[in-house]
Structure formats: C-alpha cells, structure tokens
Nucleic acid binder design. Structure first.
Lengths: 375, 375
DNA sequence: TTGTATGCGTTATCAG
DNA sequence: CTGATAACGCATACAA
C-alpha cells in the first residue's frame, strides 16, 4: 500500500513552496479564512485562527511578499542610493536607515551610484521596477540636475534626499547644518587665538561644501576678520590633496596659523606634511576638520572635527519617508529636516587647556568606544 | 464634447502605473506581443518591436519586477546578511557583492543581524518572504548552530557563507585562509628576529579567530619555538582591549618582544600603551595585526597587517551564488572558495630596512590611495 | 509572426 | 463569522 502523499507526517520533502491554498486544503477551510487568520483580521474565530497558525508553523509556511505587494500595489521594500557604501559616513547612515526600516517591517535595497549620474539613473529605474515603497538618495558627485528624479515623483513614489542634494526647494530632504558646522569650527579656532585661518574647500556645486565654506566665511566676518582668498584652497579631500594644499599654504608669504578643512582625510594629509616640515600642531598651525572620521582618534595629536550625526541622519531620513507615506494624497508640501552638527574639540586645535570642557571629552571617549568594529 | 481619455497626447497625469495591458490596448495588439517585444523574444516582427519600444518609452512604461518574479517563481533579488554594516571589512565586502550583483541584474537587500542570532533568524524569514534568489551571509558572533539555516535549504534557496561560518562541511562558503594569514604574520615577526611573540586572540568559536591562532602556533612550531600559553590572551579586539592586554603582557616576568594581534584595533591599543610606557615600536616590541584597516596607515609608526581581500571576497561570494544557480537541480556538492591573504609589512614590525621589498611598499601606497572616501 | 487563455500567491469585494 | 471569486501585472503553453 502506497503511503499517502497528504500524510501530516511528511513535513515537506524538497523545495517547498507552501502556499495559503495548501493550508486551506489541509484544514478544509477557504483561503479567505487562512488569509484573515494570518493577518489577524478582526472577524475571525479564535479557534480557527489558532488552528491555522499552528498548521502554518508545522508546514513552515512562508508568506510571499511579492504576491502581497502585487495585489496591494505597495511593497515593503525601501530603495537607498548612495555614491558608495564604504567609508564611515554612508555606511553609518545606511546603518541608521536599515535599523529604523527593519523595525518598521521594511527591507532595504541598497544601490551604489559610484559617483556616476548614469549609474544613478539606472539605479532609479531598478528601484522603480522593484516597486519600492520609497526612495532615499544622496546624489552622486557628478549629478548636476534633477531631471531623472522627476520620473520618481511621476510614479508617486516618496522621495527623500539626505546629506547631498542640489539646490531646488521642492524636494524633501534631511541635511546637516553644514553652515553651522563650518561656523563652529572656525569660531573655535578664532577663540584659540588663530587669526590667519585657511580653508580646504570641496567642490562648490555640492550643497555640503558650499555651506561649510560659507560658515567659515561668516565666522571670520562676524569676528571682524576679512577673508583672504589666497587662504582658500579647493582640494579633492584626499590625504594627498591635503598634503599638497598644505604645502601650497606654507609657501605663502604669510602662512596661516590654522586650517579648517571640509574633510578629515585632507586634514590628516596636512598634519603629516606639517610634521615632516618640523612644524608643531597646534602650536604653529592648529587643525580642525569635518566628518569626525575614525582617523581623528588615531592621528597624533588627535584631530578636532565636526561630527555629522550619521546615524541620526539615517533615522531621520526614514522617519521623513514614513511621514510622506502617511501624508499620501495630500497636496505636496516640502519637508526639510536639518540636523545640528557637533564639534569635537581635540588636541590638534587646543592651544591652551582652558577650553577643554569635560563634556566634550567624555563625549569623545564614548564615541571612540562605540565606533569600534572588527571582523 | 469630452476629451478622450485615451488620447495619445496625455502622457500620464498623476501616479501612473502603465502596464503591458495599457501598451497593448494603445497599439491594438495583444499583451503577448508586448511581452515578447519587451523581452526581445526571437519570434517578433522588427517593425512591431520598434513600435512597442517607442510607445513604452513615450508612456515611460516601467516593468513590474514583482509580477514577473511571481510568475516565474524566481526574483532578481539577492539577500545579504552581515553582523553590521559599519567598519571597513563588511562595508567593503558588501561593496564587492553589490557591484557584481548589479552588473548581473540583481538587486541587493541588505540586512544586519547586529551580532544577534534572533535577529539573524528574523532576517532569514524576511528574505525568504521576499522571494530572494539567494542568500549570502556572514554569521553573527552569537550564532552557535546552523539550525535556522536548514529552512533556507529546504526552500531550495542557494545559500553562501562568507568569512564567518561555523564548522560543518555541507555548506558553500568563501573564506579567507586565516591560517595562512596568521602564519605569514608570525613568520615575518620571527624573521625580524623576534623570539617571544605574543598573540591577541579572538573568540575561539568563530572559524576566523581559531584559524588565525592556529596559524600563529604552527609558525612558531615550524621554527622550533614552543608556544607559551601565557603569551596568548583572548581579547575582545577593541582598542581598550588591546591596551589592557598589552598591559598584562608587560607585567609578565618575561615580556614579549612582539605581538601578533587577530585584529588591528587591538593592536592600536597596544601601540598606545607601549608609547605611554616609553617603549619603542618596533625596537622594543614589534607589532603585526589583521584586517588592514585604514587606521594602520594613520598610526605612527604605520602598522603591519594582513589584508583580507574584502572586495574579492564579495565578488567571489556572488560568483559562487551564480554557480549554484546554474547548478540548480544537480545533486548538492559542497563548494568552498579560499582566498589568500596578503601581508602588508610596515614600520611597526620592521627592525631592519632589509626586508622592505619595493613591491610591498608600492602596493601599500596604492591601497592607501584607493581607500580614500569622503562625504 | 501573433493571439488566447491560464496561473503565480495574495488580498479585497462581495454574498451567505 | 466564513466562502466564492475577481484582480494585481506578467509570462508562457497552446492554438491560429
């Protein structure tokens, strides 16, 4: 006598796509009942519900999100586009996004534009085809206009920019107050007695670099110091770029007594060059940077830097997305979230001990501890 | 007279889910024709094909991958689970995976287990529900058995482990030859004249740390040196852990003249402590670490370290996945890819200049250049 | 070369 | 409280 295929003893032999229909057949009820029991619908008998749940566990039923999304017209997928995923900043932001998203039942599809607009465009297509519920993006360095984002709006998919964005007011975005960051760092250098403060600036078509520079300029002005254009060097923010830029500054008739760099790597380069020339940091040249990279705590002396609140930015971006989902249908209203940066004062800019507030230091220590990761 | 809704002049007013059915109606052909034209089927008239493509572009038709996946039973989604996404290693591996995957038309869903098995289990459920075509995973630190991965196999979803995995032979995996890495680093220290070489070891239930330690032991043995258990310290691989461990070693009756650490962060801690005690690196104590973190090039002296080929690992993991897809149906055969580590010799372990080969140095420089990222 | 019909797994709309 | 049925958008076996 052949064994019955429908025997409850057989869990599931091979590739086992158990569907709601299977559960329905097995229990002798309708698919509707199964669906309702599984989604905890109100009009459902507690007895049948338990029975369904039990059977589902037993056959280890796995819901098919694709089918559900197709039916409902809304998926639980969230698209994220970043220029690249390496480096502390974007990795941390993605970490923040993913953590918040998964808590809310969303899965995150990650895309890299590799700083290339064409790639970015392709990423958008892919995400739209994947029927994502929303798209979070930090534009690539080569993105000069918003045309390819129009399609996203046209499809009614919520769109949130974070950190990097182009000028244009009709977009939702969460950004850091880069101006305040530049201002704080520069003011701090001024308070340390520096008077000829140079600036390593980034590409000026990106909001972040433009704002950091403006913060620097405004800090100087509000302290009655006229900016000196020869002290502003546009550099690519790499270690080598920092070395070269620092060398150029030292070749000036009147070298600076401090540098505010729009990035930490360039500042490291500056530090290396200064040391190689036998100059002391901060006594001869004080340094303050941007991003609060891990390297700031490794360099000697430790580097003063502006923290970008990476994880908060990720969380905020996701929150903004959910707000957009809730506000669906209502007329478009632009939403912007602006995060406040935090200056971490370290030895590279401390000319006297008096400014070293205890909170700042304990915060820095805490950061160091929490940032440690290992394989 | 009311304007016709089907007028070709109306591109698409609001949220516009243009489907193949719409294109078919507009062109007066069947959906089959549309489907074939779009998927470049062979039996399709070039004229009609062009017409379809043109109309699709005009109405900016966006294919619905969900529907296609549902129909075909196979999606173009790839699930990736990592303990966390921050830090150089996993970010780089994910970078490698995403780059290879998107090139092959796959989208990557990223999940973080946060070093928590329960979370890892949930991640698996999510990915299976999302109908991913495969799952790539590096297990969490708290994962002690493979039970929750059985379900994945049962569903017939290709599963690839990378870097971290538990013992067990019937799995597909791409790993680094950690044993060779530990061996090379230790041999290098021996060649520098070190004789009492200590080891900072990681949790021994993870393959990677066990193998690094074994490589260390075997290198000692093959050089006729009996391992000294008091020189092996299990530490949590943080900077602080490294400081404490180094302090313990220095308190020994016979302190070591070198340390091979299973991680770079701990080595940085050791370096800091040595400096604070007035000891010189590498003259008094030579240091070699693991992971080739960015900090190795920031610390002074630069830290010798074993590179883990992060991106190659990501690429290899994806390749292994595609192989599994192609080998579908055939009986299971375990596949393992073992990557060879590369030792980067730097000042922290160089007691004499003679060993500093030019290739090593140029490779290190190249690495430094290519790793620079900025916001 | 093109069209017709069906089903993938789910949810929503109706009746009972 | 429960059930039958349609529909989501696409791909394919089968017919023309």
């Amino acid at each position: 006598m052949a064994s019955r295929r429908t025997s409850p003893k057989e869990p599931n032999p091979a590739g086992s796509p158990v569907s709601m229909a299977d559960l329905a057949r097995e229990l002798g009820v309708s698919m509707t009942t199964i669906s309702r029991a599984l989604s905890d619908h109100h009009s459902i008998g507690p007895a049948t519900k338990q029975a369904v749940l039990k059977l589902a566990k037993k056959l280890n039923y796995q819901p098919n999100h694709l089918a559900a999304a197709l039916r409902k017209g809304k998926s639980k997928l969230l698209g994220v586009i970043v220029p690249y995923i390496e480096g502390r900043f974007f990795a941390s932001v993605v970490h923040g996004i993913e953590t918040a998203a998964s808590k809310a039942g969303y899965s995150v599809i990650i895309c890299q534009s590799s700083e290339d607009v064409a790639h970015e465009r392709k990423n958008l297509e892919t995400l739209l085809s994947a029927q994502v519920a929303g798209i979070l993006v930090s534009v690539s360095r080569t993105t000069m206009d918003f045309r390819h984002f129009e399609k996203v709006k046209k499809h009614g998919v919520p769109l949130v920019f974070f950190d990097r964005m182009l000028d244009g007011d009709d977009v939702n975005a969460v950004v850091l107050n880069d101006h305040a960051g530049g201002y704080q760092a520069t003011r701090h250098l001024l308070e340390q007695g520096c008077r000829r403060i140079a600036h390593f600036a980034g590409t000026q078509h990106l909001n972040i670099y433009k704002n950091r520079r403006q913060g620097y300029l405004d800090a100087l002005l509000s302290h009655g110091i006229a900016p000196d254009e020869s002290l502003i060097i546009e550099c690519d923010m790499t270690v080598e770029g920092g070395q070269e830029s620092m060398a150029r500054l030292l070749a000036l008739p009147q070298p600076p007594d401090a540098v505010f760099s729009a990035g930490d790597s360039a500042n490291l380069g500056a530090l290396q060059l200064l040391k190689s020339r036998g100059l002391r940091v901060p006594q001869d040249v004080a340094l303050a940077g941007f991003s609060n990279e891990a390297l700031t705590l490794v360099a000697e002396p430790n580097l003063t830097s502006v923290d970008q609140r990476c994880e908060e930015m990720g969380q905020a971006a996701f929150r903004l997305f959910t707000e957009l989902v809730e506000a669906e249908g209502t007329p478009f209203s632009q939403r912007q979230v602006v995060l406040q940066p935090q200056l971490f004062v370290r030895a590279s800019s401390l000319r006297s001990g008096i400014d070293e507030s205890p909170e700042t230091n304990s915060a820095a220590k805490k950061l160091q501890r929490s940032r440690v990761h290992h394989t």
